[in-house]
Simulated scan of single mutants.
Amino acid sequence: MQTNEQLLDLLENYLAQRELPTEPERLYDPIRYSLAGGGKRLRPMLLLLSCGLFADDVDVALPAAAVEIFHNFTLLHDDIMDNAAVRRGKPSVYARWGGNVAILSGDAMLISAYRLLAQAPPALLPRILEVFNTMALGVCEGQQYDMDFESKQKVSVVEYMSMIELKTSVLVAGSAMMGAILGGADEEQSRRLYQFAIELGMAFQLQDDLLDSYGGEELGKTIGGDILEGKKSYLMVTAMSRADEEQREVLRHTYKDAALAPAEKIARVRAVFDALDVPRLTEQQISLRFDRALATLDGLNVPDARKEPLREYARSLMGRRK
């Protein structure tokens, strides 16, 4: 059985060997730039690890690394919608090449993802495509809800959780489910892997929200970015649900106050978060989701030794605060 480090090397080599045309440069160079940006490779790693639960040879699952190309395609278009200048600590494709190039290169990435996915074993391809298409549409739905929230006066915690399940967790869960199918899992096993990854993806996104306001610089984005944008993160919607009217006014208007420096805005909003116990409540929700994920994995009817690499990887994801 390969170690997680060996699986990551296998994945990186596989992606690096995907040859793209050289012309037109302004279509393909941004794709190379995006895919070379690294990132955690969370989705294809979960795919390979899920395959490894049921199969000794995970090479069969490599074409489904198309999920990483699809994920990066969504980031290109997200950055246009968010007017984001930075992605993973370097200029975004949108900032470097402009919106039109980012749209077209993103479209080409989506097509490339399907072309790669089509190399999966023919007997399993209909099931793989069904999972992939459901997952891809869910991501689009989640993104639309996220954009809707920008102009919505009140967003509940339940609405926020539904949104991140679609925008983040569905892609993570679809990746795990495809890996299980390609490894030979039956319907019940593959659905259990899906539910494991839904909970893990939720924990991961909530941790991301927490790190944005309280973490270090390791995420490649400005600490307090969500606060400065007035974004309805889990921390913000939780705070709004618990705040009195005076606190709500601070949460609603601080990010727009031109008289305050960015650091003052962050400090003012965090003071409300702290007063309402929001960091602890967020940690509590992260732990709940992560524990549910591990319990679901533990209930899977495969030898414990086969589960350990996936369990170890999940723990490494949730140890980002350390």
Rank of each mutant, 00 (worst) to 15 (best):
R252K: 14
L211V: 13
L219W: 12
R248E: 10
G220M: 11
D208W: 10
G215M: 09
T238I: 01
T222C: 01
L211M: 15
L210I: 02
T238H: 03
G230L: 04
K231V: 04
G224C: 12
K232H: 02
Q205K: 03
T254P: 07
L260F: 12
K221F: 13
R270W: 07
D209W: 07
E217N: 05
T238D: 08
G220I: 10
A275Q: 15
K256R: 13
A243R: 02
K232T: 00
A243S: 09
D274M: 10
G215P: 03
V269G: 12
R248S: 08
T254L: 13
L251Q: 03
A267S: 09
V237Y: 05
G220R: 12
A258F: 11
V269I: 07
Y214A: 01
G224D: 11
D244F: 02
K231A: 03
V269C: 07
K221T: 10
V272N: 07
L251T: 04
M240S: 09
M240A: 11
G216H: 14
F273P: 08
S241I: 05
G220D: 05
I223P: 02
P262C: 11
S233W: 01
Q247L: 07
I266G: 14
A275S: 15
G220E: 07
V237L: 11
F204V: 09
K232N: 05
A271Q: 15
E246A: 15
L210D: 07
D257A: 14
E249N: 10
S213V: 12
E217A: 13
S241D: 11
Y214N: 04
L235E: 02
K231I: 00
D208H: 10
L228E: 10
E264Y: 03
R268H: 11
D209P: 01
F204Q: 06
Y234E: 00
S241E: 14
D274F: 02
F204T: 04
D212T: 02
L211S: 08
L260T: 08
